[in-house]
Deep mutational scan, measured.
Amino acid sequence: QRITLKDYAMRFGQTKTAKDLGVYQSAINKAIHAGRKIFLTINADGSVYAEEVKDGEVKPFPS
């Protein structure tokens, strides 16, 4: 399943989102408010992988 960072954070909370991605909650808040195009893939085992689309390139998040 693929979902935006904002939607994932709204569904699970910023604290869990940060923990799942290995970053601080403040980084999640800042990324959402900056309007960054970050998409999360939720794997069947429950693990989460995030990618950011920037300038036409897709890069892992966090980099």
Score class of each variant (00 low, 15 high):
45 D>S: 06
11 R>I: 14
56 G>W: 05
36 R>Q: 08
33 H>Y: 13
58 V>Q: 06
49 Y>Q: 09
55 D>F: 09
2 R>S: 08
43 N>H: 11
18 A>N: 01
45 D>W: 05
36 R>M: 08
49 Y>L: 10
14 Q>T: 15
18 A>M: 03
55 D>V: 05
29 N>T: 14
13 G>H: 01
47 S>C: 06
38 I>C: 01
26 S>D: 12
46 G>M: 06
40 L>N: 00
28 I>P: 00
58 V>H: 07
1 Q>R: 09
53 V>R: 06
61 F>E: 02
10 M>E: 15
49 Y>G: 06
37 K>W: 08
27 A>E: 15
35 G>M: 08
11 R>A: 11
5 L>G: 00
4 T>P: 15
27 A>H: 11
43 N>R: 12
23 V>H: 03
37 K>P: 13
56 G>S: 08
2 R>T: 10
1 Q>C: 11
16 K>V: 05
58 V>C: 07
29 N>F: 12
48 V>K: 03
56 G>F: 07
8 Y>V: 00
29 N>Y: 14
46 G>N: 07
59 K>E: 09
55 D>T: 05
11 R>K: 14
3 I>V: 12
17 T>N: 01
20 D>G: 03
42 I>E: 04
41 T>F: 11
41 T>D: 05
45 D>H: 05
4 T>I: 04
60 P>F: 06
8 Y>P: 00
14 Q>G: 09
14 Q>Y: 15
60 P>D: 05
49 Y>K: 11
41 T>Y: 12
13 G>K: 01
43 N>Y: 10
51 E>I: 10
52 E>C: 04
36 R>H: 06
6 K>F: 11
48 V>W: 03
63 S>E: 13
60 P>V: 08
63 S>T: 11
31 A>D: 02
52 E>D: 03
19 K>F: 09
54 K>I: 15
21 L>I: 08
47 S>W: 05
1 Q>T: 14
5 L>I: 06
9 A>Y: 09
24 Y>P: 15
48 V>T: 05
54 K>S: 13
24 Y>S: 15
19 K>R: 11
10 M>A: 15
33 H>D: 13
46 G>H: 06
29 N>Q: 14
23 V>G: 03
61 F>A: 01
